[in-house]
C-alpha cells in the first residue's frame, strides 16, 4: 500500500495523501506529499477512526482542483458522498484508499471502538448503548421517555458530537442559534438540544458512530441517529451516503406520497 501511494505521489497522479503519522506515540492526521516521500514509512493504517473527511473538505475548499488521497473505508466513502451531495467536496478530487484492499489478510486488524458495558444505574434508569432500535421501541412509552430524558440530561453540552461529525459542516449551527438553544449556559436544555441535532442528521448521518465515541456522557447517540436513518429509509426510501439524490428534507419532491397520521 505504501509503495502504491508512493508511486501515485511520484507520478503526480495524486497531489497529496491524508493519513496518520505517529507523533510521540499518538496517531496524528498528517498530509503526505511528494516533498516528503520518506515520511511514508511512518504512515499508520490501523489508527482509530477520526473524521479525515472534514479535513478533506477544508483542504479542497482552500485549494480546489487538488487531487487528494485519503485513508479510509466504506464509511469514509459514504461521508464523502454525503459531503459531495451538499457541495462540500468534488467527488472527482478525492480517492479513498482502503488498507483492507491491499492487505485483506490484515482485515480487522484496525483498531475499532468498543461500546462500554453499562453500569447498574444506567441499566436501571438509562439506555444500554448496545441495544438496537427495536429493543427501545419495545419499551413502554412512559419508560422510553424517562430513559431517553435520563440519557439526555447527562449532556454537558461539550458539542463533541457535532465537532467530531464528518458530515457536519454548516458555518452557522442551529445548536448555537440564540433563539433556539441558549449558548453559554449549562444545564443543557433537554431534549431540544439532542432532538434538533437528530433532526439535522436526517438524510445525512452515515452511522460511523464517532459521535457516541466522542460523547463524554456516554449518551446512546448512535442508536438515536440509527432510528433517524431508519425513519428516513421507511418514509422516503433514502439511504444516506449511498443514494446520490438530494436528501428528502432538502427537496420538495414531485408529488406527495405520504399519508397524514390520523388522530386516533
Amino acid at each position: 500500500m505504501r509503495e502504491q501511494i508512493r508511486s501515485w505521489l511520484e507520478s503526480g497522479e495524486m497531489d497529496a495523501f491524508l493519513g496518520f503519522k505517529e507523533v510521540e506515540g499518538h496517531p496524528i492526521p498528517h498530509l503526505f506529499s511528494k516533498a516528503n516521500l520518506a515520511e511514508l514509512e511512518g504512515l499508520i493504517v490501523n489508527a482509530p477512526r477520526y473524521p479525515l473527511e472534514t479535513l478533506v473538505a477544508e483542504m479542497l475548499q482552500s485549494q480546489p482542483g487538488m487531487k487528494l488521497g485519503v485513508l479510509g473505508d466504506e464509511t469514509t466513502r459514504r461521508a464523502l458522498n454525503v459531503l459531495s451531495i451538499w457541495n462540500q467536496v468534488s467527488p472527482e478530487s478525492v480517492r479513498v484508499i482502503d488498507p483492507d484492499q491491499f492487505a485483506p489478510e490484515e482485515k480487522g486488524a484496525r483498531k475499532v471502538f468498543r461500546v462500554s458495558e453499562p453500569g447498574p444505574v444506567k441499566l436501571e434508569r438509562g439506555i444500554d448503548n448496545r441495544l438496537g432500535v427495536d429493543a427501545i421501541q419495545a419499551l413502554d412509552g412512559d419508560d422510553r421517555v424517562r430513559r431517553w430524558m435520563y440519557e439526555f440530561q447527562k449532556c454537558i453540552k461539550c458539542y463533541g458530537c457535532r465537532n467530531i461529525c464528518p458530515v457536519c459542516f454548516c458555518k452557522e449551527c442551529s445548536l448555537e442559534h440564540q433563539d433556539l438553544i441558549s449558548t453559554g449556559t449549562v444545564l443543557t436544555e433537554v431534549p431540544i438540544f439532542h432532538l434538533v441535532r437528530a433532526v439535522h442528521m436526517a438524510g445525512r448521518c452515515i452511522d460511523c458512530g464517532m459521535c457516541e465515541q466522542a460523547c463524554p456522557a456516554d449518551i446512546p447517540l448512535r442508536l438515536l441517529y440509527r432510528k433517524v436513518n431508519s425513519i428516513v429509509m421507511e418514509l422516503f426510501d433514502y439511504e444516506n451516503g449511498l443514494s446520490s439524490d438530494q436528501p428528502p428534507l432538502s427537496v420538495l419532491g414531485e408529488k406527495v406520497v405520504l399519508e397524514l397520521k390520523p388522530i386516533h
Binding site: 412509552g141 412512559d142 419508560d143 421517555v145 424517562r146 432532538l195 437528530a198 433517524v228 425513519i231
Partner: peptide, 8 residues
Amino acid sequence: QELLEFVG
C-alpha cells in the same frame, strides 16, 4: 412524528 414517538 416518528422521531418523537421513538423518544416517547
